[in-house]
């Protein structure tokens, strides 16, 4: 990459984007550092990733409302977590967390377990329990 070709496609993803350091070759063929404001292909894949997350969150929301899964699934997606990450945060075995995805099991959970989830999701137990019920 030549220094003059360091991309400056200002990212459309928000104004607090940071300028990234790149290594590029100057006219004399020497490596120098240059700041890049963004690069379109990168913005495309980042936007794609954010979109995919939004889709997952929306799907989870609908499934909670239809009583297919428990609110834990929705908040897990909202926090961009997967089963492994969530299990590590609440310090439970994966198979237990997976069971809690089931609404029937979820409704029987005691408050100390619910508290763990609520703390990780940064919400109250009330919010966790009532999500999707209207």
């Amino acid at each position: 990459m030549k220094e003059s070709e360091v991309p400056q496609d200002t990212s459309s993803l928000g104004e607090n984007s940071l300028k990234e350091l790149c290594y590029a070759v100057n006219e004399k063929g020497e490596y120098v550092t240059a700041l890049s404001a963004g690069w379109e292909p990168k913005t495309i894949v980042q936007q794609a990733t954010l979109d995919a997350i939004s889709v997952r969150i929306e799907e989870a929301k609908q499934q909670v409302e239809q009583g297919i899964v428990s609110p834990i699934v929705y908040y897990m997606e909202l926090q961009r977590m997967d089963l492994t990450t969530l299990a590590a945060y609440v310090k439970l075995w994966k198979w237990r967390v997976k069971r809690h995805f089931n609404p029937t099991t979820f409704n029987k959970l005691n408050s100390s377990i619910l508290e763990r989830y609520a703390t990780v999701f940064n919400i109250t137990i009330e919010e966790l329990k009532t999500f999707g019920k209207r």
């Binding site: 990234e20 290594y23 292909p41 990168k42 894949v45 990733t49």
Partner: peptide, 13 residues
């Protein structure tokens, strides 16, 4: 995701 790993922050491109 592959492109993200390749180009995202940290790789210097």
């Amino acid at each position: 995701q592959m492109v993200r790993m390749q180009e995202e922050i940290g790789t210097g491109g």
